[in-house]
Design a protein around this nucleic acid. Structure first.
Lengths: 264, 264
DNA sequence: CGTCTGGTTGATACGACTCAAATTTGGTGG
DNA sequence: CCACCAAATTTGAGTCGTATCAACCAGACG
């Protein structure tokens, strides 16, 4: 069992921004909203790479929020086939409202070592009840998560390997960019080729060859867990990437906090 | 533009049950909850088969609830490829909370002629604010919708044609069964082979051949828009169907209305 | 060092696609 | 009630994308 760490220790310092900046892709938050968020995420634990945060069948007891590291949402078939149905990056909630369900119907596994905040249902209620901006931003988060899942369905159903991989890489880059963890076409990229295979419904052999092709076409570089996108326009065109589904343009700005809202 | 019909006319009579029975897969509702639901869905319109209820890019103005008929949620690529990312059956909400987003990132199209209730955001707020059972049931609906989307991702990513089609047919049967529209392995089934192809990421030619195979294996019959499942156990085994993700077992029963709750 | 995980490569097989055409079904109007 | 038309289904032949199986290699790690 991973260690459960209490209290807002010094390690917390870097964690607030990831959450806040994710939600601020939707609406600007007040300093107050931000501190409520980091207060709510004061209990956290670390999960080692390649271990589950929570497993299929478990009863969800709290909401998980990834503060640091990458995770995957995956499902497994009885014969061993595995599908990564979502990639979770810093700032993402794993399972908003999931405590309504009795059992997890999928697992969440750490890709890298993970720092996850654990928020109780009560705390979630407290957080949203008095803060409409946060509540709306969380709903937005849910809707975007659902939109991403639909786009993955399209990706798997209609795009072929070359387009499909490209689309996935762009999505991840843009999502990281939205939380300040990617710029100039460059970002950390801890997924193995096998992870990419499980996320795209291909074999790792084919992912390998397709990745070579992408490199050969001078579209990207990918080594040492670092992705460098070389030609975003061409990649977007060939993968028919439409950014709509990420709903990134401050759609909730009518909810924006006043720029200089006094602290309570 | 389809006709917009006002008021709880006689046509409304049959509509309440679909919604209520969907939500009652989660928690039993009081007569009061039920009448609030049917009050909320008193404005409805009809949509002809093969026309859009709402299209990608549109601004969502209200929540749609399908009272009668089947619809599909679909996305389209610039080169014409289309993927049905979800099937919507009577009792399903199309887009809970969607009004938070500025633009639809996908379309909803009628498969058969449709009767859809249109509920304003205000009405949704009114409906849930005073009725925790309904609110929880709606959250459950959202979570199950998301779980289905994930299962589709798995289905497309890992199952091959024969398993994949089987899995889809079982899912639809079970979902219809949950709202009282399927029994004894039999149900209406208005999808064309082309629809099935777009929902499974296969070509209609291959769907045709696979369907023949399923019939040849005496697993099902499918003609004249009627599906008859002949051997559910074998179909579940071969498609590795795990009913977990549908969360059908009255998981919210602690929220159940008292059996003889007096009407207000 | 040996071991392990992740990446790379080659040869071969097969599932699903493409294209094309024929056939059946269901709906519509005469 | 039949003739007609469009939509949906069925079938065949040939091709292609991706899987499979099997090695081999490189770097990380204890």
């Amino acid at each position: 069992m991973p260690l459960l760490t209490h209290g807002p220790g010094p390690t917390l310092v870097g964690s607030g921004p990831a959450v806040a900046s994710k939600l601020e892709a939707f609406a600007r938050l007040s300093p107050d909203d931000r501190s409520a968020l980091s207060h709510a995420s004061r209990y956290f634990r670390y999960v080692d790479a390649r271990r589950d945060v929570i497993s299929e069948g478990d009863e969800p007891r709290h909401v998980h929020l990834v503060l640091e590291g990458w995770a995957s949402r995956y499902k497994q078939l009885p014969d061993g086939r595995r599908e990564i149905v979502a990639i979770i990056v810093p700032g993402d909630f794993c399972d908003l409202n999931i405590y309504i369900l009795k059992h997890m119907d999928h697992s969440i596994g750490a890709i890298t070592r993970l720092k996850v905040a654990m928020i109780s249902p009560d705390e979630m209620v407290a957080l949203t009840a008095q803060r409409p901006r946060i509540q709306q931003a969380l709903r937005w988060h849910e809707l975007v998560t659902a939109a991403i899942q639909r786009e993955w369905t399209l990706n798997l159903g209609q795009r072929k390997a070359y387009e499909r991989l490209t689309h996935l890489l762009i999505e991840l880059y843009l999502r990281l960019n939205a939380v300040g963890r990617a710029q100039d076409g460059r970002c950390d990229f801890p997924l193995t080729q096998n992870d990419l295979a499980e996320a795209t419904g291909l074999t790792s052999v084919h992912v390998n060859r397709t990745l070579r092709e992408l490199r050969g076409d001078r579209l990207l570089e990918l080594e040492r867990k670092q992705l460098q996108i070389l030609d975003m326009p061409r990649m977007m065109a060939l993968s028919m990437f439409n950014t709509n589904y990420l709903h990134l343009r401050h759609e909730g700005q009518y909810l924006d906090a006043p720029m200089n809202e006094p602290a309570l």
